[in-house]
């Protein structure tokens, strides 16, 4: 196992390469997820605002 981790003396190059590969792809995978969560929260807020506006001032809807 230690032999394998040592990568024949090239561990300092092989493992950082794999770390970069997985770190960049993890960023690529997570960034849109966070963006989507933020967007969903905004959309929820927008719909909730519209609903409260409609219930509080029913005339606004009638005039519009």
């Amino acid at each position: 196992m230690m032999d394998w981790l040592a990568m024949g003396g090239y561990a300092a190059y092989v493992w950082p390469a794999y770390a970069v590969f997985f770190a960049v792809l993890a960023w690529d995978w997570l960034a849109p997820s966070f963006r989507k969560r933020k967007l969903m929260r905004e959309l929820h807020g927008r719909i909730a605002r519209e609903q409260t506006r409609n219930t509080r001032v029913p005339r606004a809807e009638a005039s519009a």
Binding site: M7, G8, G9, Y10, Y13, V14, A17
Partner: peptide, 8 residues
């Protein structure tokens, strides 16, 4: 030739 470095 390259040992284990080629695994990249």
């Amino acid at each position: 030739q390259q040992g284990d470095a080629y695994r990249i």
